[in-house]
Computed example of a mutant assay.
Amino acid sequence: MTADVAVLGVGLHPWGKWGRGFVEYGAVAARAALADAGLEWRDIGSVVGANTVRGGYPGQVAGATFAKALGWQGARVTSVYAACASGAQAIAAARAQILAGLAEAVLVVGADAAPRGFFRPAGGERPEDPDWLRFRLLGATNPAYFGLYARRRMAVHGDTLEDFALVKVKNAASGALNPHARYRRRVTVEEVAASAVVADPLRLLDICATSDGGAALVLSSLEFAHRHGASEPVRIRAVSTVTPHYPSTVLDLPDIATDSAAAVEPPERSFRASIARAAYEEAGIGPEELSLAEVYDLSTALELQWYEDLGLCGEGEAAKLLREGATAPGGRIPVNASGGLASFGEAVPAQAIAQVCELTWQLRGEAGERQITGARVGITANQGLFGHGSSVIALR
């Protein structure tokens, strides 16, 4: 049995700061996806919601919340949470239901109404959560974390501030062509350099904003798609939601600081590379077959890291790939043709779903001015808290 599922419909609520609730954003996106699929709400057999921790109890049972907003009609509901990977986990759950024969058509929805400024810990004390600890004990907000990562790339690979700025310039140019994007203005390297330092070496324009927004997909079995007139739909071939590969070690001393037992060999590959490899293996393809990629550019430096972790280039070669124009529209492997988070900002449960929306438009040839010529295979990639990561491969 094929593991492919069809993407029948896609929909977005534009990103921004709209001052309304996440349910409204998700319902708008869901109705757009249903219209794009040419289906009625009653045709949907299951609803999978990507949860938000900022929406109170309704946000924690997003599947039922969106089903209620659209009109209860007896569909099965599922709610999932994996922080920034929530949308991809929702896609994985929907795909599993379809392949198991539990539903023929599934609606996947994620939406968020984000606070102003940078994210802060939500949901109470979580002393077992490394991200909560870095916020509370170190005061290391997300931008501080991004800045440390950027410094590492500068030290290890020789990346420069101009390299980081060029990522923003590229993504802003694509975002300017995307009607769903929040920021639709081109920028220059000089403007990035002149923006305020947030977490050295990163400037304000190196870091993505927090946003409101919503995204939705209608997924189905291939048989259902063919019965409803989609002879050659975009197909999801792989969904990777693996944990990192890290060495195991047993700490059996009362004071690990006095002994080398705490020291271990570094992992054979990074967390993000583990995610990508699992997707490639499941899809039976390699990075050389990709037409485009949508990656999780929380910062400009992190986008460069994804180039290497997705196998688009060798280790330490990301800045060279960028400068050659390979990741720009018209290049060998365009990255973030949507404009990325640089142009959208984070609407956490929606963003992995929105990435698949972009792949779908591109693979259908419906991306308008930002269309990648001849796009046939695309990959998404993002990461969430606590070892959650995801990658989706779609093709046509």
Rank of each mutant, 00 (worst) to 15 (best):
V7P: 00
L8M: 15
G9R: 01
G11I: 09
W15S: 07
W18S: 03
Y25N: 08
A29D: 01
A30P: 09
A30C: 13
A33T: 01
A33M: 05
D36T: 07
G38F: 06
D43M: 11
S46N: 05
V47N: 05
A50P: 04
A50W: 02
V53I: 15
G55D: 02
V61K: 09
A62P: 03
G63F: 05
W72L: 15
R76W: 08
S86H: 08
S86Q: 03
G87K: 03
A88N: 13
Q89V: 15
A90D: 03
A90T: 04
A90C: 04
Q97H: 09
I98S: 01
G101Q: 08
G101M: 07
A111M: 09
P121K: 08
G123F: 10
G124F: 07
E125W: 05
L133P: 00
F135Q: 10
Y145L: 14
G147A: 11
Y149N: 12
A150Y: 03
M154E: 03
A165Y: 03
A173W: 02
H180N: 15
A181Y: 01
R185L: 05
A196S: 14
V198D: 04
A199W: 00
L204F: 02
D206Q: 08
T210A: 13
D212I: 11
G214P: 03
A215N: 10
L219W: 01
S220E: 00
S221G: 14
E223A: 15
F224G: 01
H226N: 08
A230H: 15
I236N: 04
R237W: 04
V239C: 05
H245M: 12
P247Q: 12
D252H: 13
A257E: 14
A261E: 12
V264F: 04
V264I: 09
E268S: 12
F271H: 12
R272Y: 06
A276G: 10
A279Y: 01
Y280K: 06
E281A: 15
G284Y: 05
P287S: 13
E289T: 06
S291N: 10
D297H: 10
L298E: 03
S299L: 06
A301R: 00
L302H: 06
D309G: 08
L310Y: 02
L312N: 03
G314M: 07
G325D: 05
G330A: 12
P334I: 09
A337D: 00
S338L: 09
G339K: 09
S343T: 07
F344I: 12
F344N: 07
A354K: 02
A354W: 01
C357V: 15
L359Y: 01
Q362P: 06
R370S: 00
T373N: 13
S391W: 02
S391K: 02
R396Y: 01
